[in-house]
Design a binder for these strands. Structure first.
Lengths: 251, 251
DNA sequence: CGGAGAGTTGACGACTGTCAAATCGTGTGG
DNA sequence: CCACACGATTTGACAGTCGTCAACTCTCCG
């Protein structure tokens, strides 16, 4: 009731046909008839940077897609240790059909707009319009692959490699969103605080800071301000990340 | 061509209706008509303990379900560091519809029987019989949850907590398979070598061995032989694992 | 100007990895 | 039936990475 209602930049109703995530979201495969069905059911919600969208364990009666902004999924242990387990970018899906309560904290790290459906109607839609279920399966399989890549990072990479990997991942996503290539000189803005990076990487905030400084000192990256990063040679960064040069994917 | 053909215990054709994984596998929701369709397409393959089923990057022209035995999915870095990213038990699904090549090494850690489908026919089945796609989505979402739980383990737990978690996970699965409860005194056999455990947990084999010894010394577990484990008080084990007492789930 | 939040840096120590050797268990050849 | 070999596991000694605690800088804002 508090801030949730007083959200930023109220999103006016957008026609699915001109939606920015139309071709990647859960609705990507829908035909015109199916879109009409979604159109009459969907609604938009906005959240401010820093705002928690749902708490782990809380009842969650909607599902939805990130339209703009970034959100994170995080798990917390009893003693407060935290591990990020999902990084949600535009077109990513939030929530699980068939589940009552949220399994993770979902937090908006930037201002965020979501295209939502109440859970029950969405479950009905999934039964009626196979294209939604098919696309959701595809997206879930992609997320599973990303999670497994992430497990390799968490289990086996050094702090330096973790940082290099994260920068590479964000740069690749950013490039693919802007339809640019990620080769040679690449520039990115980190959408995460040092703390959020540490939660992503299974490190402490201090180690993150130190390794960023080290990569900077070694010329792998250059930094302007706190968040703006210039990668003079993307291949070098990949090498530092310990990945074989070919693709890397992500949520 | 070599050992692959000379597999153990040739599985004779089993009717889906009396298949041991009938109620949990990708076919769980199928009705009689649909089963008939699967029945005429499926075939069985057997593998010996230690045998690699597919190598990462290789062409993979089938998908399938584990009928009996255990397999692992593993990623390898260029310098040889390895991280397990999936532990496949009976009823778990192997392979990804719509993908040409395997993304991970798949290895049988015990003698294994799989119920297979060539990929193309399976993709057709998925389009025709919605229950298969629906069930696969459900299973994939479960796997994603398990992967995220695993990420918390890899990123934030201590070596001791990792070992306790692994034992708890295996004990829970084992209990659920045998329809027993996992409370009070529990007994399990570890189906993994110390090395496989270390690949699961993101540790070295030596650390695994040391922490198992420590848990034994502290009375959290008792050991007979190398693999047979007695847990006098399951709640105590859970406490050592750092989990909140309620559920824990897994692939 | 003071304060709060984000980020950086330093000193130190603990946990876990590395290297090496010893032990246990099982299967094979003599 | 026993000795030996090999793989799996355990244990020890030591080193390095990363976490902890703490001080300090920078920027933004009231």
């Amino acid at each position: 009731m508090q801030k949730t209602t007083a959200a930023p930049a109220k999103f006016t109703h957008v026609q699915c046909g001109s939606c920015p995530i139309r071709h990647r979201a859960v609705c990507a495969r829908c035909d015109t008839d199916e879109l009409e069905r979604l159109e009459e059911t969907k609604y938009y919600r906005s959240f401010e940077a820093g705002q928690t969208i749902v708490w782990s364990g809380d009842r969650m009666d909607f599902v939805g897609s990130v339209v703009s902004g970034i959100a994170t999924l995080t798990q917390t242990m009893e003693d407060g240790r935290r591990q990020m387990v999902g990084l949600l970018l535009p077109s990513d899906f939030v929530g699980r059909p068939g589940r009552e309560t949220a399994a993770y904290d979902v937090v908006a790290t930037t201002d965020l707009v979501m295209c939502c459906f109440r859970k029950k109607p969405f479950e009905t839609i999934m039964l009626d319009t196979p294209h939604v279920g098919q696309r959701l399966l595809e997206m879930t399989l992609d997320e599973l692959d990303a999670a497994r890549e992430w497990m390799l990072l968490l289990g086996r990479k050094t702090a330096r490699e973790k940082i290099a990997s994260l920068i590479a991942i964000i740069a690749r996503r950013d490039a693919s969103l802007k339809l640019q290539s990620s080769e040679g000189r690449v520039v990115v803005d980190l959408p995460l605080t040092r703390e959020a990076m540490s939660e992503y990487l299974g490190l402490t905030l201090e180690t993150v800071s130190r390794q960023i400084s080290a990569l900077k000192r070694d010329g792998v990256i250059q930094i302007e301000g706190k968040r703006h990063i210039i990668i003079p040679d993307f291949d070098l960064l990949i090498e530092e990340a310990g990945d074989d040069s070919d693709g890397g994917f992500l949520v």
